[in-house]
Design a protein around this nucleic acid. Structure first.
Lengths: 141, 141
DNA sequence: TATGTTGTAACGATTATAGTTACACAGCCA
DNA sequence: TGGCTGTGTAACTATAATCGTTACAACATA
């Protein structure tokens, strides 16, 4: 299961857009996400390193480096998956090479898994954050 | 990250096909996968419950209920994901409903995440196990 | 300078996974 | 029928990821 860091990151970026003019602290964001401010700051550190936002020590808030319509869900996904295995599917290691199945299964599955992962990522790449933000701000509920 | 149970299950099913005529024990399968026989039996228990194979206590091996060309990677994926959250993407819980973002982000993300997950699953559904087995048995390596 | 904020280290709690031991029970064969 | 082999499953351990939390140094600004 892909961690909720992804959804929290989208939440953060949406709030940054919404409070573009002012300065929103990690504490306020944490209040909306309903978690601890440090969790938010950790995530913003990742978004910062990925070049999606710009933040600096001591000063509240952060600014979007690119407009939301130039950020896709895939960009965010990759930003927060940093340090985690970039492969979506795990393959068991060290199968027995003396067995033809053990010898060849890894490369065969790699190919198939890569296709499935690409299909998923392409779908994420089709959605920009301004679409998401619009859906959120204009949801009928 | 999706657990290696998935790849192990494919490994097991391929071996069952390969040793269709005889009887292959969980110990032998474990030797090919390079793990503990209990891990294999646990997995076969899941495949059994999912109706993909038939095995019975005391008797070595298991038989495929359906031919490999009638089993897709998605079938296997679902069989071994049993009991795990069926949603691929986690969404943070209890965001603050007093904030418009907190109030609406879950449903918005659910929609987008569901599409990405479907794209991945459709790709898995396109591949049958006999294709995988053929790739494994005839790999150039 | 005083206050508030960020960035980050460190630690604990929780959970998923995978390996291992143990054993009851079922089937099979001499 | 008695012994051997194998399955099914519970129970325990180790490991790793995730998330929350406390603590604190460094920084910015009024």
């Amino acid at each position: 299961m892909i961690s909720s860091r992804f959804s929290v990151a989208v939440h953060i970026l949406t709030l940054l857009e919404l409070h573009k003019s002012g300065r929103i602290t990690s504490e306020l964001i944490a209040g909306s996400v309903n978690t601890n401010p440090v969790v938010i700051r950790r995530m913003m550190s990742l978004l910062n390193k990925a070049g999606l936002i710009h933040s600096s020590p001591g000063v509240a808030g952060a600014t979007l480096v690119r407009p939301l319509y130039e950020i896709t869900l895939l960009d965010v996904y990759r930003a927060v998956q940093v340090g985690v295995q970039e492969e979506l599917f795990a393959i068991h290691e060290n199968p027995n090479p003396a067995c033809i199945v053990g010898k060849n299964i890894q490369s065969t599955l790699e190919t198939n898994f890569a296709k499935a992962q690409q299909a998923m990522e392409q779908e994420l790449a089709r959605v920009t954050l301004d679409q998401v933000a619009n859906d959120i701000l204009h949801a009928q509920s």
